[in-house]
Computed example of a mutant assay.
Amino acid sequence: MRDVLFFDSMLTPKVITFVYWLMLVVVLISGLKTIFGGFGFSFEKLIVGLLMMVTGAVGARIWCELLIVLFKIHDNVKKMAEK
């Protein structure tokens, strides 16, 4: 607990994993709402919904990986500073 309160360890990398899964759920719900929402079912809505789910999942993954890379850089710089 002391590490978190005095910023000796980073809490955000642990939170990023939770945020990633939350973003995947939101993307899935949004895609399904696009496919089945509105009046009737159409091929265009199916394509748009599937594209939304795929691009949203890939975008969420890329965004979370970039954040994790920043924290890994921080860890490596911290190790170099300790040497």
Rank of each mutant, 00 (worst) to 15 (best):
M1A: 11
L5F: 13
L5Q: 06
F6M: 14
F7H: 12
S9I: 15
S9N: 15
M10Q: 11
M10G: 05
M10L: 11
K14S: 13
I16L: 11
V19C: 10
V19D: 04
Y20Q: 13
Y20A: 11
Y20V: 13
Y20H: 12
L22V: 15
M23W: 07
V25K: 06
V25N: 02
V26C: 12
L28W: 01
I29L: 01
S30P: 01
G31Y: 04
G31I: 08
T34G: 06
F36D: 01
G37R: 01
G37Q: 05
G37E: 07
G37P: 12
F39P: 00
F39I: 15
G40A: 08
F43W: 09
L46R: 00
V48I: 14
G49P: 06
L50R: 08
L50H: 05
L51H: 05
L51W: 05
M52N: 10
M53V: 06
M53Y: 02
M53C: 04
G56S: 01
V58Y: 07
A60T: 12
C64K: 00
E65K: 05
E65G: 00
L66T: 08
L67H: 06
L67K: 02
L67Q: 05
I68T: 10
V69E: 00
K72C: 02
K72Y: 00
I73H: 06
H74K: 12
D75S: 09
V77Q: 09
K79I: 13
K79H: 06
M80F: 14
A81N: 11
